[in-house]
Design a protein around this nucleic acid. Structure first.
Lengths: 218, 218
DNA sequence: GGATTTAATGAATATATATTCATATTTATG
DNA sequence: CATAAATATGAATATATATTCATTAAATCC
């Protein structure tokens, strides 16, 4: 994990500012703890994961966690926010590299699947908590959420103005549809413990097909 | 709420057997507690809802709850199981009254939305916890879950064999997809606090349209 | 390399609340 | 109506764990 990504101000910059050695060290240790916490939360869920578990996993003492994070809850949110920010950064970058709404949509799906595949622990947390009201409402207030909305909106709007996507249904609902399909497929995919190599491109094609053409037989 | 529905054996019967007065009383009191718990859980979520809260809401003392339910967790499951059973009963009955896969799918969507609308407390609980892995796996073992799977399977299979729904995608996937869309749309619908009357039929049409035809402009 | 600042430790504390159970109340019985 | 059985009560108990903080260790400075 890129340690700079822990700091939103720096993430925004094209070229990360060089931090002081101290501060860099601090971010690295935060990252240690985040990585450990990500694993433990994924394994046990928020409530059953104890600070002790997390500290042990990170090879620190219990109290040390509190030198780096306010409390259990804010540690939890740090993980989710950070990961969503990371995914967002990838999506924005990759989508900018292709032309045409169809390709952009495909890229969105492909890179999302890829990210989930590479961040299974986070994905577990995400599907465990994604629909939890309290977390959704907290997350909705974070700056990363509005960025995400923005990107998503632009994606669908472009597809609509290009004539690929229908305009008789609200953009919001189209967004929901796409997200529903994506989550539902990703969930089913990783639920079954097949050790096989994932065919990301094949899966992307299916999802895009379902999104655009629906479940009706033609 | 129908008190008989608390007892699976009796629910199954076409005509409920007359219970002893004692037993009936007991079920009524269980129902009191369930109703109170439903409200409190919806309001505070599982962890923040205390047995005291629930007892107070039901106008019983704390300890009384334990005369009717094993523990907090089983009370929680009783609610979810009972509600899913109730929804299932409605769905099966209503779907049986219409002909053709398209109408059946529409009925499924419409009655689900209607049930969510009429059972907002339960819906809150459902979306809060539905995707929590531990709860899902516990629920999956209950008899009501397999009945639900059965019904859902039959619905999609029929749509496939009638030629309405494509067969190049697994039934399970189609099921998950429909459910994911339904829940996500319902969630977003009721999230926004528009005091207006909900247009259930309009929303049903949109969901069915998107599910079958997808987002592509035609 | 000794003094001082900074960081890490983990046992002790504080708190929260699920669950129990001795007691009180209500209901049934003869 | 008196006694017994069944229910309800809520204060006390047990447990769990997030958080603190006095102590120890490490890093930095002069």
């Amino acid at each position: 994990m890129n340690i700079y990504s822990l700091n939103p101000e720096i993430t925004e910059e094209a070229v990360p500012v060089q931090l002081g050695r101290k501060e860099r060290h601090r971010l690295l240790r935060k990252a240690d703890i985040i990585a450990a916490a990500e694993h433990v939360f994924a394994l046990k869920g928020y409530h059953k994961a104890t600070i002790q578990d997390i500290a042990r996993q990170a090879q620190y003492a219990t109290g040390t966690v509190y030198l780096y994070f306010e409390d259990k809850n804010s540690l939890y949110f740090s993980i989710i926010e950070e990961k969503i920010r990371e995914l967002l950064r990838i999506l924005i970058a990759k989508i900018a590299q292709v032309k045409g709404a169809r390709l952009k949509l495909g890229t969105f799906i492909y890179e999302s699947l890829r990210f989930f595949e590479m961040n299974k622990d986070f994905f577990r947390i995400f599907i465990q908590e994604e629909s939890s009201l309290s977390i959704k409402s907290k997350l909705a207030k974070s700056p990363v959420a509005s960025k995400r909305r923005e990107m998503f909106n632009a994606l669908i709007k472009e597809a609509q103005s290009e004539g690929l996507v229908r305009r008789d249904i609200e953009t919001t609902q189209i967004k929901e549809l796409l997200e529903s399909i994506l989550v539902s497929f990703a969930f089913n995919w990783w639920k079954e413990p097949s050790g096989q190599e994932k065919d990301l491109k094949g899966m992307t094609a299916i999802i895009l097909d379902l999104f655009l053409n629906g479940a009706k037989k033609r």
